[in-house]
Design a binder for these strands. Structure first.
Lengths: 187, 187
DNA sequence: GGTTTTGCAATGCGATCGCATCGTAACAGG
DNA sequence: CCTGTTACGATGCGATCGCATTGCAAAACC
């Protein structure tokens, strides 16, 4: 068998280029040619690793979710309250890298409304986040299970809304973080 | 001068068809031919009234904002607290019509990240909503000006996040409304 | 050192796109 | 009736799209 290459590395290069294209031109601006040009590879390579455009876009979505989950897992040895703060603040864009990431994330959120596959990936991630946040809340303070879940949902929904406002520069990152800190601190 | 037609009516028919296409296929699914087919008119007519595709899509955005503002104005003679509740709950999709409207709205929100013209329209609308809500809060209870604005921002951001969750069916409309009512009632 | 299998680059095709252009049917004003 | 203007339907063009196909270079295995 011939030519051993690092498949994961190749796939990652292409997915990263996909994210850049989405961040700059939105999901409507994604074409195999644009992504190939951004990654500095040929269209054929993308076809080889992902098959169709839809499969590529979906892979970009799952990669985004996986990266976020990986970042959260690195906080495993922190206190529950701090982990909760991390989840809330992590998506507020502070620098250009964070802005790119959350821009792509929002693009997928919008796509999920009309795309069943993307919707399923995001729905699973969201339910996971809600359950984990509810767990953190119960670890931090005494609450009923359903009360904690409602709290988690409220905090995450608020974080989403504030993230959007920072994204379109209607709100400063500092203000968003301050509001989230205040809400997390509340009972 | 020839053939007097109701320009506003013609434009409205086309914009409504545009909304249906956006709701069903997302903004990426919008093409002049699709919109023309949905409206039951020719492509030439759309070109005649809107010129380019970008102008059409932007007109759909301003029409959406105008419609929302018109709906709010109809509550002019209600109490401040009730008007505040209206603003918060109005966007939560309860029936199919509401779902279409908010689906289109979210599509524009996502587009605003990469489209300066759409961003400006939505930013203006959002600032107007924030100021108006802050005004309603001060009319309802005793608060400082900046405190009311922060409250308004928090409530609207939460409403956005909850709306999204209802839209992707992660949350029941009733739960979203209940959470918003609770927050509006809070100091 | 052939053989075979993998990893891709290149190319071609049919569909679809936005938009410019052209032609004309309808109708108000003279 | 005639003329001029408006409102549009029809058509065509060049660009771009996703994807299938083809061909070949590189390298593990005999």
């Amino acid at each position: 068998m011939p030519r051993i290459v690092d498949h994961e590395e190749r796939r990652w290069e292409i997915v990263f280029a996909l994210w850049l294209v989405i961040a700059r031109h939105g999901i409507e601006g994604v074409s195999l040619r644009h992504v190939a040009a951004e990654a500095g590879v040929s269209m054929g390579r993308i076809q080889h690793y992902f098959g169709t455009k839809d499969a590529l876009v979906l892979a970009g979505c799952t990669a985004l979710v996986d990266r976020a989950y990986g970042g959260y897992q690195e906080t495993a040895d922190a206190a529950a309250r701090d982990r909760l703060r991390y989840v809330m603040n992590q998506q507020i864009p502070r620098d250009d890298a964070g802005r790119i990431g959350v821009t792509v994330w929002y693009a997928y959120v919008a796509k999920s409304i009309n795309d069943a596959a993307v919707r399923q990936v995001l729905a699973e991630a969201r339910r996971g986040a809600e359950d984990e946040c509810a767990r953190l809340i119960r670890a931090d303070r005494d609450t009923s299970a359903e009360g904690a879940l409602t709290q988690a949902r409220r905090l995450l929904a608020l974080a989403d809304g504030l993230t959007l406002r920072v994204l379109v520069r209607d709100l400063e990152p500092g203000e968003a973080v301050a509001m989230l800190e205040a809400e997390v601190g509340r009972a």
